[in-house]
Simulated scan of single mutants.
Amino acid sequence: MHPTGARGSAPRCGRASRPPPPIRGADYAAVHLVDLPDVHAEAVARVIAAAATTESGLARAYYGDRPGHPVVMARAHWAAVTATARGDEGALPYLREHAGRVRRVDCGDLATGVDRDTR
C-alpha cells in the first residue's frame, strides 16, 4: 500500500532535488508509479509523445476507460502541481481541475495498468 502522503510528496521531492544538467532543461515530466509491473517504456514514450503534440502539454495513460499512469505534464504545470499535491492524491486535484485539457492516451494494447499494491 502507498504510505500516507507518498503520491503527494513525490512531486515535491522531485522538484526540491537538483537534477543533473541534461534533465534541468527538460520540457516535460512523466509521473509513473513503481507498482505497475506491466507498464513499460513503450507506454511512457506514447504518453510523452501525446503531451508534446497537445497545446496543454498534459497527457495521461488510459487502460480501457480507466485512467492510470504514466501522467505527463509540461513544465508550465510543474509549479501548480507541486503547490497543490497533497496526501495520497498527488496530482489528482490538478488533473481533475484541468480534465478538459488532459489528452487521454489509450495504452490498453501495451499493458493492463493494474496497480499491484502489497503490504
Rank of each mutant, 00 (worst) to 15 (best):
T84M: 14
G90R: 01
V102G: 10
A26P: 05
R7I: 03
H2W: 09
G5K: 08
H69V: 15
R12D: 05
V34K: 08
D27F: 00
D109Y: 06
V44I: 14
R96H: 10
L36S: 02
C107M: 07
M73D: 00
P37L: 01
G64I: 08
G108I: 07
R103A: 15
S17R: 14
M73K: 02
P19F: 06
H2Q: 04
R101C: 06
I23Q: 14
G90S: 02
A30N: 01
V72W: 03
A26V: 05
V105W: 11
P22N: 07
E55V: 02
Y62S: 04
R18S: 14
T112W: 05
P21E: 13
D35E: 06
S17Q: 15
H32P: 00
L58R: 12
M1L: 06
H69S: 13
G68W: 04
E42I: 00
A52L: 00
G108Q: 08
I23D: 10
A29S: 09
A99Y: 01
A26Y: 03
A74F: 08
D117R: 04
G68S: 03
A74L: 04
H69F: 15
P70K: 03
G68C: 06
R7E: 08
Y62W: 14
E97R: 15
W78S: 09
T82E: 14
A99F: 02
A91G: 01
V72T: 11
A99H: 13
A51S: 08
G5W: 02
A52F: 03
E42H: 14
L95V: 12
V102Q: 12
V34C: 03
Y63G: 09
H69K: 05
R60H: 03
A79M: 00
E89Q: 11
D38A: 09
R101H: 08
A52I: 01
G8Y: 08
H40K: 14
A6D: 02
P21N: 04
R18V: 13
V102E: 09
A29T: 10
R86P: 02
T4Q: 09
L33I: 09
R18G: 11
